[in-house]
Amino acid sequence: MFFLHQGYSLVPVKTVQLGEAATLTCALPIKEFGSITVHWYKQSAGDGLKLIVTLSKSAPPEYSPEFSRKRFNVENANNVCNLTVLKTVQEDEGIYHCGIAEWMYPIQWSETYLSVKGNTQMTSNYTVVQWPTVLDPLHPGESVTLQCSIISVFDKATCSEDLSVFWFRAESNKSHPNIIYTHGNTHDECENRSETQKRCVYRFSKNVSSSDAGTYYCAVDICGEILFGNGTALKLGMIFH
């Protein structure tokens, strides 16, 4: 298991071979399990959260119709809740969210990206570029556009249809980043840079608020592996009233 960026405790990535079992873990509070309920969700590129299963001590696991218990298994032991994909297929790839609900407390979240390897293309043929490294200070209400370029090198240059691009925002005072946008398999533009090289550009635009400062990472799922940019730091200027 590795992380999207070493500078923060970001979303961990678990990589398995196609057809293997994959077990994702979620740390539980050190207290009686009977006082909490655990929800597991899956999020694919371009999609919202889809509930997989709900687990509590007072009832057997409740699986959503889309996620059969023949393919998924959930159990808790030693203050850890495990979700196991019994035999992975390519469609299992995505971000898995664990939500811990306690009475009178906010839901606690943790995430893991499950990467399913099975494609024969080589990620060494790709480069992920983010720029500028630091944006000039902005003020709330101003618009900003973040840009991420994927450069591919092949005998016949192409932007793979298997690309999935995610944008994360990380703050130094948070243990996990927020996923803010997914491109799915769409890009803004592609161009041939040479006979063997092609570049596809992915952009994310938003009007900033006072809480939007942080480092924004472009993470790209290529052929079952994760490549990521160095991040773009978004700084907000001083606000005068």
Rank of each mutant, 00 (worst) to 15 (best):
N185Y: 02
Q90S: 12
Q197R: 13
L51G: 05
W40K: 06
Q130A: 11
R71D: 12
E93R: 08
Q197V: 15
S160E: 09
E171H: 13
H183C: 03
S68E: 11
F204K: 07
S205E: 05
L236Q: 09
M122K: 15
R193M: 14
N125S: 15
Y126R: 05
G214D: 00
E111C: 03
P137A: 07
T112E: 05
S58C: 03
C81W: 00
E195H: 08
L83G: 05
F154I: 00
W103K: 15
S64C: 03
W167H: 05
E195W: 02
N79S: 14
S152H: 03
E102A: 15
D155G: 06
Y181S: 08
D221S: 15
K14C: 02
C148F: 00
G99I: 00
T133N: 05
G46C: 01
D92R: 02
K42P: 02
M238N: 14
V38M: 10
G141L: 03
L10C: 12
F2I: 06
T186I: 08
Y181M: 06
N73K: 15
K174F: 05
Y113G: 00
S58M: 11
D221E: 10
W131P: 00
L227Q: 13
R69Y: 05
K57F: 12
T123G: 05
T88H: 05
A21G: 11
E142Y: 01
A233Y: 09
C190E: 11
Y96L: 04
L28C: 09
Y63N: 04
A219Y: 00
G214N: 02
E93G: 15
L51C: 07
S115Q: 08
P61R: 11
V74H: 02
A77P: 00
F33V: 10
D221H: 12
M104F: 12
F33I: 02
C200I: 10
N192Y: 12
G141T: 00
D188M: 05
D212H: 10
T215R: 08
L163F: 15
T54P: 03
C159S: 13
L10Q: 10
A219H: 01
N79R: 10
V74S: 03
I150L: 12
L18K: 14
F204R: 07
G237L: 05
C200H: 08
G19T: 01
N178S: 12
